[in-house]
Design a protein around this nucleic acid. Sequence first.
DNA 1: GATGAATGAGTGTTCATTCAT
DNA 2: AATGAATGAACACTCATTCAT
Lengths: 202, 202, 202, 202
Amino acid sequence: MTTRISLKEKQQKEREQLILEYAERVLLEKGYHDMSMDEIAIGVGVAKGTLYLHFPKKEDLVFTIVEPKMQSFLGSVEEAIALPVSPKEKLEFLLNRELSGAFFQFLLTSIPDMTTIFKSHEAEVNEILPKIFSGIHEMLNEGKREGLFDPDLPVEFMSSAFINLFEPHLYKEMVEARKMPVEVFNSHVSNVFFRGIMKIKE
Amino acid sequence: MTTRISLKEKQQKEREQLILEYAERVLLEKGYHDMSMDEIAIGVGVAKGTLYLHFPKKEDLVFTIVEPKMQSFLGSVEEAIALPVSPKEKLEFLLNRELSGAFFQFLLTSIPDMTTIFKSHEAEVNEILPKIFSGIHEMLNEGKREGLFDPDLPVEFMSSAFINLFEPHLYKEMVEARKMPVEVFNSHVSNVFFRGIMKIKE
Amino acid sequence: MTTRISLKEKQQKEREQLILEYAERVLLEKGYHDMSMDEIAIGVGVAKGTLYLHFPKKEDLVFTIVEPKMQSFLGSVEEAIALPVSPKEKLEFLLNRELSGAFFQFLLTSIPDMTTIFKSHEAEVNEILPKIFSGIHEMLNEGKREGLFDPDLPVEFMSSAFINLFEPHLYKEMVEARKMPVEVFNSHVSNVFFRGIMKIKE
Amino acid sequence: MTTRISLKEKQQKEREQLILEYAERVLLEKGYHDMSMDEIAIGVGVAKGTLYLHFPKKEDLVFTIVEPKMQSFLGSVEEAIALPVSPKEKLEFLLNRELSGAFFQFLLTSIPDMTTIFKSHEAEVNEILPKIFSGIHEMLNEGKREGLFDPDLPVEFMSSAFINLFEPHLYKEMVEARKMPVEVFNSHVSNVFFRGIMKIKE
DNA sequence: GATGAATGAGTGTTCATTCAT
DNA sequence: AATGAATGAACACTCATTCAT
């Protein structure tokens, strides 16, 4: 009995996963507006109603895709902060950890849309995003205080540059298409960033 | 007669300009999908049909807004290349010239949408964008050859970082909201970029 | 064995009763269209499928609620007719008996909906309603013959007025909200009706 | 030019009228929920979008049908009050005037639905309906004061009986199907009502 | 028998596009 | 050329009904 139930539940979870995976792909390809619920339903091979069984609104489906990415990013930020290493190494850790899951950039570049889309999830979004930024700023300021980072460069410039490193197109091109090893990719990205914000030693 | 025609033509051009200006504003505010042709028509004060006299498709209207931005960016790239200065100065010139007209970034951040939108203008887009990138790569490679830029950093990383500097959110926040002087803004951006890709002097 | 079966049957009946009671409440509150099968299932605490075990269609569930009300009304009509009293007293008996169980009026006021809803139960409806009316007409005609009721007033006017007395809003307002005693309510209603159709004595 | 415009406008008005007429018929036949916008569009012979050109919401279409009936009824109430005749004659005037436009009853019997439907028109509804009732009550109370109407019968019973006289089924049956002259119909209805609420002369 | 996940036809509504005037 | 009423395909979403377990 328990088995049967957990089987059903497993199938349900799997189906939900299928929907989410397909929807994520379409979302990245076409963007929020051009992703239709019909398309997802057909693509996954379920009825439209089934989609709505799992996700009451299109918004909710998309938010379910996007929210864990934000959470995971925030988690990494917090892990990084807690690391007993230098601010630079913290940020490097964060870069290495999150660069491949580059979906996060999608979020940030799509923020104009996202705010409209996530009206109903405003609270959650406004809970997570500021934490991410203040976490990054914390590390950057720590680095400034320690004389590692350029004290004249506002942290906003630094964090903006940092966030913009999570650019999925470059990742796709270099790692996926041109088969550049991830470590090499990461070290290049890291170099671009740190040599930029490092205080120049005289 | 010629005069009357050219008068009419002038009026037409003016009207077209009015449409484009209004549409650009709405486009930036609301994004492609939430900008409706009705809204433009009402806002400009013409009939919806008139819009379609000038632009056969919504896509075309938007492309007409976006295309000159790309062209102008390409023009700046070519100007920069032709400048009798160092590659670094060429890129600085390009940054200063285009950073404020940050519309170009709109394109890039909206790429998820844009690719779907500009299916019918694929040819033109594929005409301009590669030229832009190869122009930038040309300057970067020149800098590499001259020993100015890190020879180990693929130009794609450099250009990606460069392009991502055209981030309108930061500009809005710092220059428009916090009243940072444009020159200061530009120098920060420039610093972030160049100290990053510059070869470290031993 | 018989016992167990009848136990099961009893449980089934009870469950059916539960469904009907809950559905009737919702039906009266929200009307046919805004009463959803989901809501009923959740409210009663059974699975949606179970509803369909008892009632193959939503229509059938509703008809099962409504039909006994019609039958009971018809029963009262027949009882009234059989009473060894004057036609007026027969109708008074009917009024007093059915006024409070004013559900019958629901039927009549919802006729716009009902006719569409009960397409599949047309036969049964057309079995009962005409009997009700002809019963009432019988009493009215009897009264006419006996010189009690206005001979010039077609019975259709009389029965229409009679039926329209079963108006649940007034009942709710006066008895439920303003705590008017039911007997007083009934006597007012009765007065309105009879003084209207009574032959004026010269 | 003026002619052409007024021609267009006339056509528009005519089309709107066509929509309203068709919709009213369907509304009466099927009720609010079973009247679909598709059906109306097809029935009238226009595209669905055209419906929405005239009426932004289904609610609005229905309200446009219903509102003038309420207004006209209210108008008649006010006219009746202003008449320099006895309260009885005022009410008779009202009956004669409005009985044929029996759509008003639809309103009242459908009030359960209507309140939900007309959320967005609540203000207007709550503007008109209470005025209608207080107008009728005014006449009834006047009659009571003058010793014409039963002082023991609450006006609510009287007005409820009055309103319920506007029963379209009886009208259809007698006047439309059985070709009873309207005047005869009206006088019967009037009799049913007044002999009922008249104070019995001792 | 009981379940509730799955279904899919149907709904109201939007909006880019067309075309008679 | 300019208009804006008309179009209809497309969309997100609902819900009575079914059926595998």
